[in-house]
Simulated assay, not measured.
Amino acid sequence: MTDSGDVTGRVADCLLGIEMELRQIGVWERERPPADAFTSSEPFCLDTLAFTQWIQFVFLERMKLIIENGHPLPLVSGIAPMAEEYFRGRPESGQRLIRELEAVDQLLSGR
């Protein structure tokens, strides 16, 4: 069985890869959206944020806090299918970002 510290390190590496890929495809934002954009009750804040904003300002920030504070990692994750849907028909392929998200999904889901 994989050591939890090893999984945490691998998840942290994936988070860095996700950030790098968001920057690479030109969707990394310098300014945080307004506070009311985060009060959505929709999954992924779809009615108030672009999916890539949700990754940057919700997913990455929460995961980094979990890791930095030594909290247990979530037991499941299913973000990659949403990324596939988001990038379908868009000019940027998002394939490397999707692969990084798949890796996180697999690590957190224990596969």
Rank of each mutant, 00 (worst) to 15 (best):
S93Q: 12
E102R: 15
D13Q: 14
Y86C: 02
G70R: 11
F44V: 02
D13L: 12
V58Y: 02
K64T: 15
A103H: 11
F51L: 11
R30E: 08
S77D: 13
T8F: 00
E92M: 07
Y86L: 03
L75H: 13
L60C: 05
P33S: 05
E19P: 05
F59K: 10
M1S: 10
C45K: 00
G110W: 11
A50R: 13
V7K: 14
S93G: 14
Q95D: 10
V27K: 00
E29H: 06
F57A: 04
V7C: 08
R23M: 12
T39I: 06
I55G: 01
S40A: 13
E102I: 11
A83K: 00
I79P: 07
V76W: 08
T39E: 13
P34A: 06
T48H: 07
F44Y: 15
V58G: 02
R62N: 11
E85C: 00
L75F: 05
F51H: 14
A35T: 01
T39D: 13
M1I: 06
G78C: 15
A50G: 03
D36S: 06
E92F: 02
S77N: 12
E61L: 07
R23N: 03
E84G: 08
K64W: 07
H71E: 15
Q53L: 03
T48G: 08
M82H: 06
S109W: 04
F57I: 03
E19K: 10
F59W: 15
I18H: 08
E84A: 09
P34V: 03
G78A: 15
D6Y: 13
G26D: 09
G17F: 00
V58R: 00
G78D: 15
R62C: 02
T2P: 13
G89K: 06
T39Y: 05
I67H: 01
R10Y: 01
T52L: 02
E61V: 10
L46H: 09
D6A: 12
S41E: 07
R23D: 04
L49W: 07
G94Y: 07
G26E: 03
L60N: 05
A37Y: 09
V27F: 04
L101V: 07
L22C: 13
N69M: 14
A37H: 14
Q56F: 11
S93E: 09
V27M: 01
G89I: 01
L75Q: 12
D105R: 04
S93P: 04
T48S: 15
L101H: 07
A83W: 03
P74Y: 11
D36T: 01
A37W: 04
G26V: 08
S109L: 05
C45S: 11
I66K: 05
N69F: 12
P33H: 03
W28C: 06
F51K: 07
T52R: 01
V27S: 02
T48Q: 08
V7M: 08
V104P: 12
L101T: 07
E100R: 08
D47C: 07
S4I: 12
Y86V: 03
